[in-house]
Design a protein around this nucleic acid. Structure first.
Lengths: 203, 203
DNA sequence: CAAAGTTACTAAACACTGTTTAGTAGAGAG
DNA sequence: CTCTCTACTAAACAGTGTTTAGTAACTTTG
C-alpha cells in the first residue's frame, strides 16, 4: 500500500502547493489579480491541472478563506488566557480590531468579499468563525455571570459588540473613512473602540 | 440651434434609458447578473452603443451607486424634521438600519461591493454620502450642545454610532448572521439597535 | 519482461466577460 | 443632389473560468 500512500501524499502536497501559490498571488495582487492561469503559471503547471485538485475557483476561495479565519483565530488567541472576563472581552475586541486594521485583505476575504454563500455553513472556515463567535458569547456570558453588566441579555450584548467592531473594521477596509485624514483614521478607530468599552460598562 | 438641442436631449434620454435598464437588471439578477450585453439586449441596441454614452462599466456602476445613495437619502429624510436632536438621532439610526434591511442590494452596492475607489471622492454619490454623514455629525453636535451627552467628542460619538449601524446592516446583508434562525435576525438587529440607544444615553 | 490498464498532465477549445475597431446606413448641411 | 458627419453595429480582441480529448508516463497484470 506504499504506492497508494505516496500518491495520497503527493495529492495533498499538490493541493497545498496550489493553495500556497494562490495565497502569494492574493497577497501580492489582491483578489482581483488572483486567477487560475496566474496560479498555474506560478506553480509551472497548466491551468487544467488545477482542476484535478480543486473542483473550481470557489473551492480555492474557500481554502483561502479558511487560512484567513485561522490567521484571525491565531491573532485572537492571546485574549483567551486572560482570567477576568471583562478584561478578556476588552482584549478580545482590541485584538479583533487590530487584526482587521493590520490585515485588511484577510478581513475583506472573510467578511466582505462576495462569494457563493449557499453552503458556507459546511465549510471549515465557517466552523472556525463559529468558534470565534462562541468564544465571544461565552466571554459575554461570563461577564453577565460575574455581574459586570446590569443587563442579562447575553446574545444581544455579544451581537451589539460584534456589530461595532465589524462595522469599524469594515468602514476602514472598504475605504469609507476617506472624509477623515489618513493619519487620523486609526486614531479615530481606537478612540471609538475605547468609547464602546466605556459604553459597555454602563450596560 | 433646435437640432443640436434635440440631439442633446436624445443623448440624455439614451443615458437614462441605459441606466434604467441597468437598474432593472440589477434588481432582478443582482450585481453579478449585470453586464454590458444584458443591458444592450434589454434596450435593443448593440453592446458597442453603450460605450457611446458611458465611458465604461464603472461609470454605469457609479451612476447606479448614485441612485442607491439617493434612495438612502430619501429614506432618511423624515428624520430631519424632528425637532429634538436626540429623538432625531434615534430616528435617523432607526431609518438607516431600516433602509439596510429593506434594501440589502442597494446597501451592498453603496458600501460592500468592491469597486474602483480611486476617484470616488469626485463622484456624485460620494457627495451624497458625505451629506448624510454631515447630517449625522450635525445631529450629534446638536445633542452635545443640548447636553444630552456628558462626552463632548462629537466626531468619535458620530463615528461610533455609524460603526454600529453599519456593522449591523453589513452582517445582515452579507449573511454573517446564519448562526441565528432567520426569523430571529431582524428581531436581534432591532434589539441591538435599542441597546445602542440605551448605551448612548450613558455617554 | 512485455502488454494492458491507469494515472497525471496538457493543448486547445468553449462560453462568457469588458472593450475596441472598422465600417455602414441614414440624417443634416451646403 | 452631393457631401459630410453622426449614430450605430458586426466582428474582433483580450481576459476570465472551465471542459474535452488526447498523450505520455507510470503501475499492474499475465
Amino acid at each position: 500500500m506504499s504506492i497508494a500512500e505516496r500518491k495520497e501524499r503527493e495529492k495533498a502536497e499538490m493541493r497545498s502547493l496550489i493553495l500556497s501559490a494562490a495565497h502569494h498571488i492574493f497577497k501580492e495582487k489582491g483578489y482581483d489579480g488572483l486567477n487560475i492561469r496566474s496560479i498555474a503559471e506560478r506553480i509551472e503547471y497548466s491551468p487544467a491541472t488545477i482542476y484535478l485538485y480543486y473542483k473550481d475557483k470557489n473551492e480555492i476561495f474557500f481554502a483561502l478563506q479558511y487560512e484567513a479565519a485561522a490567521a484571525k483565530r491565531d491573532h485572537l488567541i492571546p485574549a483567551a488566557s486572560i482570567e477576568d472576563p471583562w478584561q478578556r472581552l476588552i482584549e478580545f475586541g482590541r485584538l479583533y480590531v487590530d487584526f482587521g486594521l493590520k490585515h485588511p485583505d484577510w478581513y475583506d476575504l472573510l467578511f466582505l468579499t462576495r462569494a457563493p454563500m449557499e453552503h458556507i455553513e459546511n465549510q471549515e472556515c465557517w466552523t472556525l468563525g463559529m468558534a470565534t463567535h462562541s468564544f465571544l458569547v461565552e466571554t459575554v456570558q461570563a461577564c453577565v455571570d460575574a455581574r459586570y453588566f446590569k443587563t442579562t441579555d447575553t446574545q444581544t450584548i455579544a451581537y451589539t459588540l460584534w456589530c461595532h467592531v465589524h462595522g469599524l473594521v469594515s468602514l476602514f477596509v472598504r475605504e469609507r473613512m476617506r472624509m477623515y485624514p489618513p493619519e487620523q483614521r486609526e486614531v479615530l478607530a481606537k478612540k471609538s473602540f475605547a468609547m464602546v468599552v466605556k459604553m459597555a460598562e454602563s450596560l
